Amino acid sequence: MQSKPTIQPWSPWRKGWPRLIWSTFVTLYILGLCLACVALVLVKPITAAGSVPSDTYTISGPLYQGNVFSGTTKSDHIKTIRLDQAKDRAVQHQALTCTRACHQTSGCHTFVIRGDECYLTSFDACKNAGKRFLLEWEGATTYELRAGSDEDLHQTCLAQCLETQGCDGCGRPLCNGTLCDNCPSTCWDIYIPKVGYTIIYPTMSIVKRVKCDGKWQRWWKDGQTSLYRSMIRKRLKVKVVIRYKTGIRLESEFESFKYKNNTISVGKFLNGTAGNGWIAPFDMRPASTPPKSSCRKFFYPKGICKGNGVAPYLDQQAVNGTKIQYGYSWQTGDKATDNIYITSIELWITPQES
């Protein structure tokens, strides 16, 4: 007797549906990946801190070895990154670490590596190389953060500047040489003599603003002294410049000059319209205000001192409630001139002729 057929409930699994569902899922997954890839291609380069393109790179050069632009670690300083010497001992790894930090910091354009520290700065050498002095800092190296879209990827901004503007316009004014390291340390070292205020380099890490008059450099005015150590490589002579209230200017030159322990030594009078008002030669004379005098501080010989154009001290003191007036004293031998108030006395220095 034939058995009755067994009636089984309907089920999609018997008709190959699992394979259909699986293949559909795989297809959608692959399609999703493709769409994601297309989206990544269309997205613009990501910017760090909203300003620096992601295709930036780091560059340095010979002039950046041991040198930094003035202000980069002070006025332009953003922050300091401490490098892990154990991990960042290699120079390349230090540069990569600092590049990443600069890239992630808003406004960072350059950084300086020195020892185990990295100084992030806002100084932009491409825009401002000629507006800052390049100073020597032993053991330091400067790096630029540059955009990959820049035309020249093999030169620093400073190197590009030097090709067109030279040392004068690109970080070290008045300097010469391939690396701009031949710089004047005195007024008389300047190739083309200057008149008025200019800059000199007592050392490659120090820049000073001084006043030049051709080969003469002003050292003293109204009690304020300028540089001296950088000038003692040669034997010097001195010029005294007297400026009067009426606009008259007189000057005299003296054979030799030395400065030591806040005193000066001056040689014999050579020539000049001001005469020998401080009675040279003399040795180790300090600047002073003689007691009970109406004289402002200067290198006077010993004795009673009365400022030109003002009453003697004791006469002024005898008038109750009167403020003592002071002036410089310099005797030219002409009575009319010696009664005119002196507004300033200046001492200028230059090498003796060989």
Rank of each mutant, 00 (worst) to 15 (best):
D222L: 12
N182S: 14
L96I: 08
I78A: 01
D222F: 05
L83R: 04
P53N: 10
S226T: 12
W348N: 04
D55K: 10
K239H: 06
K79I: 07
W22D: 02
N308K: 12
W13R: 12
S11R: 15
W137Q: 15
E353N: 14
I248P: 00
Y300C: 03
F299G: 01
C37M: 11
K208N: 09
I242W: 00
T350E: 14
S252G: 12
I7P: 03
G303N: 10
S294P: 09
A49C: 09
D189C: 06
S23K: 11
L270S: 09
H109E: 06
W220Y: 15
E144W: 03
S294G: 07
D84H: 08
N67Q: 13
A95G: 02
I59P: 01
Q94C: 03
S230G: 12
T72Y: 00
S70Q: 11
W22A: 12
A48P: 03
T343L: 11
A90V: 08
K87G: 03
R89C: 08
C102V: 04
G107Q: 05
C295T: 03
S329N: 12
N339D: 14
F254H: 07
W22F: 14
Y197D: 15
I349Q: 04
C305G: 06
Q316F: 06
P312Y: 10
H154L: 05
T225S: 12
A159R: 00
K131A: 06
M204W: 11
L120S: 00
D168L: 05
D150P: 01
D338S: 08
S205R: 09
I46M: 14
V41P: 05
L174M: 10
D150H: 08
T56H: 10
S230D: 14
Y29I: 13
S293Q: 05
T350P: 05
T56W: 04
S75M: 12
Y29S: 12
S149C: 06
S3P: 07
I232S: 15
S252E: 09
I248L: 10
I113H: 03
W17C: 08
G333V: 08
D315A: 13
L134E: 03
I206P: 00
T178C: 02
V266G: 03
G130L: 02
D334N: 15
Q165H: 13
P193A: 10
I242E: 06
F282Y: 15
W278A: 07
L158C: 02
I279L: 13
V91E: 14
N67W: 06
Y143I: 07
G277V: 04
C108M: 04
Q94M: 10
E144C: 07
L134Y: 06
K221M: 12
R19T: 09
P193V: 13
C98F: 04
K297H: 04
A336E: 13
D338Y: 11
V41I: 15
P193C: 12
K127M: 02
G277N: 01
C175K: 01
S11P: 02
D116V: 10
I200D: 03
F269A: 11
F111D: 01
L40E: 14
N276I: 02
C175N: 06
Q160L: 06
L33K: 11
L158T: 03
F133A: 09
K211L: 07
G166P: 05
Y313V: 10
R146A: 08
L314I: 15
Y326F: 14
P290L: 03
T186R: 14
Q160D: 11
Y64D: 00
G107D: 05
T27D: 04
